[in-house]
């Protein structure tokens, strides 16, 4: 079935030689061990987070009046809701671990060095995006933990002289945490950050394909 569809498309677009050359038959060092899989694991977790995140977004309403109730509903009333939200939570936590291990492996192997500087830089940007994802996602359930942790977190830039207060107001959409904070965190979490991460991932992967994985030591 899959093969039939593949051949049907290939007959029209002639994609087979391209896929063979660029993906399937791409030479890879024979000595890659499992520590080379942390990047792939992170990407897999990203896919899991996307699927579970979209599933939850179907029910979630980003307003202080409804956020808590809709999270409660999608967790306990929807079929498999507990598992979907659980996978989202644990995949997010595990992603921080795999990103860290991936960076550590690249650092120890000196794989960030010439000619792979740009890949390291996009990687650090992706790392910042992952942290921004977890910070914005934390507020969305609108429970006590979410509210007070975000209050402390968004207060931090306030300590900077001159511009601090302004930054806090931009983050919160006002001086207090409320409906505006929730809607801007929601937009960051489900629209802005995902599009940024998708664009950077394409660059990150394209560069690996172009340069190949750094030679194992």
């Amino acid at each position: 079935m899959f093969r039939k569809v593949y051949y049907w498309i290939d007959e029209r677009l002639n994609i087979r030689p391209y896929i063979r050359k660029e993906i399937l038959d791409k030479p890879v060092h024979g000595r890659l061990n499992f520590t080379y899989c942390f990047g792939g694991m992170t990407f897999f977790l990203f896919l899991l987070l996307t699927i579970t995140g979209v599933s939850m977004a179907i029910y979630y309403v980003p307003s202080p009046d409804h956020a808590y109730d809709t999270v409660d509903y999608l967790t306990y009333q929807i079929f498999m809701g507990k598992v979907i939200r659980g996978v989202h939570h644990w995949a997010a936590n595990l992603m921080v671990v795999t990103v860290f291990l991936h960076m550590l492996r690249v650092y120890i192997h000196g794989a960030y060095k010439k000619p792979r500087e740009l890949n390291w830089i996009t990687g650090v940007m992706l790392f910042v995006l992952v942290l921004s994802f977890s910070f914005t996602g934390y507020l969305l359930p609108w429970d006590q933990k979410a509210y007070w942790a975000t209050k402390v977190g968004t207060q931090m830039p306030g300590s900077v002289p001159l511009i601090g207060d302004y930054v806090v107001r931009v983050l919160r959409g006002g001086s207090k945490i409320g409906a505006l904070t929730l809607s801007r965190f929601y937009v960051l979490h489900v629209i802005f950050l995902p599009s940024m991460i998708a664009a950077l991932l394409i660059g990150h992967f394209a560069m690996i394909r172009r340069q190949g994985i750094a030679e194992p030591l």
Binding site: G40, P141, A146
Partner: peptide, 26 residues
């Protein structure tokens, strides 16, 4: 590796340590 991660996240972590929802924000 992905299979291992999937089993870890969905069957072990999400089922054995279900994520909790605290009291509503006050």
């Amino acid at each position: 590796v992905m299979m291992f991660v999937f089993v870890l996240v969905s069957f072990i972590l999400a089922l054995v340590f279900p994520v909790k929802l605290g009291d509503p924000a006050d």
